[in-house]
Design a protein around this nucleic acid. Structure first.
Length: 852
RNA sequence: GCGCCCGUGGCGGAAUGGUAGACGCUGCAGACUUAAAAUCUGUUGUCCGUAAGGACGUGCCGGUUCAAGUCCGGCCGGGCGCACCA
């Protein structure tokens, strides 16, 4: 093979990327003559370099984009940057770089990397959420939400890091300590902004049913997160004071089994009931020192404090229940108080056992041990006796309503969205607080954006906005009196809740997006990203879309993403050296007797295949792969080995295999292209049997690849393409008609592989003599008449075991198939002396002879 | 604990209830080469057999069916999500 015919990856890929860019091949406008298709990949955080997960994500969205474009759709495939957030500030603290500079440098680097992937992106719509031209619209949205009572301020308990002087998210609290400082986290009450997502709990839940093109897994996770429950809320009257306390329960049917009432430690009545009692302060202290992280709660022991007070049982005259404070009662769920039924609740059982309270069975457990939480007949419960759990709940609620003690209610687990962080690098909240009276005054829309100050320093921990000498000091826009700016900034999840709308009209400075743009582009047809966003981002975005609609924004559809696909993770083997330190895969090589470091030959052990992570060093830099093997090989490998929704194990052998295949295709076409007829050559009138067979394979492959791409089975479409290329390469044309078919096959193959390896496909397409680029070429049409073979080989079973195969027309009558099957010597042998009882013939599928 | 998903060759994975293992990776044998790489050809589920051929085989146990990797019930194993939510 001479040098000049060898496929030159670098030159070829760069060449076609330039052609696409110069032609604006993927730049789109609202074109009413075409049907639109909006494909969206979750936008990346600009950490500095792309990782393999990005490559997988954007390869998938690119396949969809290029495929739909070939199908004739007007495809919008945009890209942007989720550019606010903590890492930029950490970099500022560690390296002294300004968060803005750090972020934009990273964006420039990563954009260059994405360009080298050859993605069919409309870069004219690129957005960065840290740009004032983006966040000024977000500030307007915030004010609109505030105006519509969808954003509000309230006191709430947060994790507070006393060293960094900032609020920590639950994920940032490790073993009750701040993840950065190691300082014990305090629970503090702070005035915080919230978004009223709970107003939409019912709607967000119900609408999940309509999200038919979402993974069931994600739909379930969102349902659970919203957590709707039905039950009863009712009142206990204290016998020891004039107070009352409301409790919430999903099991009012077990009320006759109640043996105590428990209140949250921070319940409004707690101090009043028990304040000053011995041990009260210690108990409260203990409850507060428990972190709010799930882990901390998990480990915490059930703790109670007897208030000494009692309440009256609503159904049983004269019966009193003791009132405890308990650390496992949450103030912000239900009413912050419960009644305990130890017989039929595990938590209550543990609590009752510890504090020596009664345990009364009120559901027939059928002999099972307590606590019993299953279904059964109600016992020991007066008017509820004999009822099922379900009927008992209804009857108990009815009774509570009759006596005026309570009612049936619906509760949600979903809480309002804590919207702010005590951070610099986020979207400023456009309100000021008047110093004279503390009134919260929105910044008028014509004064937006409230821009972040650039002159900041990180000499001290905490929020630089808070201690900025001038920025926060301003005047009230209404009265001109001195005022202080809000120094909290928005949660970055706000930024990503509406970016999909900004892409539709990214150049619009006047408004976030126009009605014209949203009317045409509508909702996202196919959203693609990691399953880690199954709840938060996807739920916030669904909420934000509804909230914007309520504020009068031109929202095209109730749901932002009509189709969702969640990709699997990328995994890799881990390597450890003799000292137990992790080693990068790029630093090791395989020897006959195991693995060794390339540098010094010392042995390393290969460990578990797990998700790529920097801490375990089992990461591959996709740029190295693209530089060595090219973007096409990286894309092809990622698509071919695993179904996209499953984890993908990265392997050197796999990427090399993809690279070899690309070279092979190119080489094979170069070998035959001069023998092919001109692309204008007319279709021959007759074909040889072998040519006809190849034509069938071509057209069946077209159909199969379409189906597999639409079902997100990219691995199967690659397999089908490889099968076809095997057929093409081994096909030896004997006449002009054969050669015509060979050209037809190569052209089809080239178009089919274009979504996966677009550079190679463009190159092959040009080699086939086309002037029009493939990115602007339509998908081929599979000919109906060629989708079925003229003969089919089917199995013949005897008593369910395959004993022979027969080849016949797929339309052959059943009798013929039966006759052929029974005439087969292998079948006769298997039947032996047995009697034929029945013959089942499924035309084109199977013959089964039942004999015995 | 609750919910969901997944168990198929040495490996990644294919199989509208109808010939299990497509396609690929790895391995083995051969061709080309002074040699190696690259490339090409053949082969590659297990067991018995020189062969023809046969038996077994989709985590385990049962069921439905002419026919089960696929459907149903019960286990075992792995993964993910949620979790003091009353």
């Amino acid at each position: 093979m001479s040098e000049n015919t060898r496929y030159n990856i670098k030159e070829t890929e760069a060449k076609w990327q330039k052609v696409w860019e110069e032609r604006g091949a993927f730049t789109v406008t609202e074109d009413s003559s075409k049907e639109k298709y909006y494909v969206l990949a979750m936008l990346p955080y600009p950490s500095g370099r792309i990782h393999v997960g990005h490559v997988r994500n954007y390869t998938l969205s690119d396949v969809v984009a290029r495929y739909r474009k070939a199908q004739g759709y007007n495809v919008l495939n945009p890209m942007g940057w989720d550019a606010m957030g903590l890492p930029a500030e950490n970099a500022a603290m560690e390296r002294g770089a300004h968060p803005k500079d750090w972020t934009y440098e990273n964006i420039a680097q990563m954009k260059a990397q994405l360009l080298s992937m050859g993605l069919a992106i409309d870069w004219s719509r690129e957005v960065a959420t840290c740009d004032p031209s983006y966040y000024k619209h977000q500030q307007k949205m915030f004010l609109d939400l505030y105006k519509n009572d969808l954003a509000y301020r309230k006191e709430s308990v947060v994790n507070w890091d006393p060293v960094d002087n900032t609020v920590l998210a639950n994920e940032q609290v490790v073993d009750g300590k701040g993840w950065r400082t190691g300082a014990p986290v305090e629970r503090r009450k702070l005035n915080q902004w919230f978004f009223k997502i709970t107003d939409y709990a019912e709607d967000l839940l119900n609408a999940i049913d309509g999200l038919e093109r979402w993974p069931e897994k994600v739909r379930i996770m969102q349902r659970n997160w919203i957590g709707k429950s039905k039950g009863a809320q009712f009142r206990f009257n204290f016998t020891t004071s004039d107070d009352t306390v409301d409790v919430y329960t999903t099991r009012p049917d077990t009320l006759f089994g109640a043996s105590f009432v428990a209140l949250a430690a921070d319940h409004p009545l707690a101090k009043q009931l028990a304040g000053g009692k011995e041990g009260f302060d210690d108990f409260i202290q203990q409850c507060q020192s428990t972190g709010t992280s799930e882990e901390a709660i998990e480990k915490a022991e059930k703790l109670g404090f007897d208030t000494g007070h009692k309440v009256a049982h609503p159904f049983i005259e004269g019966q009193e229940l003791p009132v405890y404070l308990a650390n496992f009662i949450l103030m912000d769920y239900g009413t912050g108080a419960i009644f305990g039924c130890p017989g039929h609740d595990e938590r209550d059982f543990a609590f009752a056992t510890k504090y020596g309270l009664d345990i009364l069975p009120v559901i027939d457990s059928g002999g099972e041990e307590l606590p019993y939480v299953g279904p059964g007949k109600i016992i020991n419960s007066d008017f509820l006796d004999g009822l099922s759990v379900e009927d008992g709940i209804a009857a108990a609620i009815k009774k509570l309503e009759e006596i005026g003690a309570g009612k049936g209610v619906t509760n949600f687990r979903l809480r309002d969205w804590g919207a702010v962080r005590q951070r610099y690098w986020g979207c400023p909240i456009p309100v000021v607080y008047r110093e004279s009276d503390g009134a919260c005054i929105p910044v008028p829309a014509d004064q937006l954006p409230v821009e972040l100050p650039m002159d900041i320093n990180y000499d001290e921990p905490g929020n630089p906005l808070d201690r900025h000498p001038t920025w926060k000091h301003t005047t009230c826009p209404e009265t001109g009196a001195p005022a202080i700016r809000e120094t909290d900034t928005m949660d970055t999840f706000v930024d990503s809740s509406w970016y999909y709308l900004r892409y539709l009209d990214a150049q619009n400075d006047e408004e976030a997006f126009s009605k014209k743009a949203t009317d045409y582009w509508g909702a996202v047809d196919q959203y693609i990203g990691g399953v880690e966003h199954a709840v938060l981002h996807l739920l916030y975005s669904r909420f934000w879309t509804r909230a914007l609609k309520a504020c009068g924004y031109p929202i095209p559809a109730d749901e932002p993403f009509s189709g969702l696909f969640t990709q699997g993770m990328v995994t890799h083997a881990t390597f450890e050296d003799a000292d137990g330190k992790w080693v990068f895969p790029a630093e090791v090589e395989k020897k006959d007797d195991g693995w060794a470091k390339i540098a010094d030959g010392s042995k390393v052990t290969i460990g578990a295949v797990v998700k790529m992570s920097k801490s375990k060093k089992n990461v591959i830099d996709p740029q190295d792969i693209i530089d060595t093997y090219g973007a096409d090989a990286a894309r092809l490998f990622i698509l071919s080995d695993s179904p996209p929704d499953r984890d993908l194990e990265w392997s050197e052998a796999g990427i090399e295999g993809a690279w070899k295949y690309i070279n092979k295709l190119h080489r094979s076409l170069m070998d035959v292209k001069d023998t092919l007829p001109a692309k204008e050559a007319a279709m021959p009138k007759a074909f040889s049997e072998s040519a006809l067979k190849l034509r069938r394979a071509v057209h069946q492959t077209i159909k199969a690849v379409e189906d597999e791409i639409e079902d997100f089975h990219m691995n199967k479409s690659v397999a089908k393409i490889r099968e076809l290329s095997n057929d093409l390469i081994s096909f030896v044309p004997k006449d002009d008609a054969d050669k015509w078919v060979l050209r037809e096959g190569w052209e089809a193959l080239t178009i089919l592989i274009n979504p996966m390896t677009p550079h190679l496909a463009e190159e092959l397409w040009a080699e086939l003599g086309h002037d029009q680029i493939l990115a602007e070429t339509d998908w081929p049409k599979a000919e109906e008449s060629l989708l079925e073979n003229d003969t089919v080989t089917i199995g013949v079973q005897v008593n369910g075991k395959v004993r022979a195969t027969i080849t016949l027309s797929p339309n052959a009558p059943k009798e013929e198939a039966e006759k052929m099957a029974l005439a087969d010597p292998g079948v006769q042998k298997a039947i032996g002396d047995g009697q034929i009882k029945k013959v089942i013939v499924v035309p084109g599928r199977i013959v089964n002879v039942v004999a015995g």
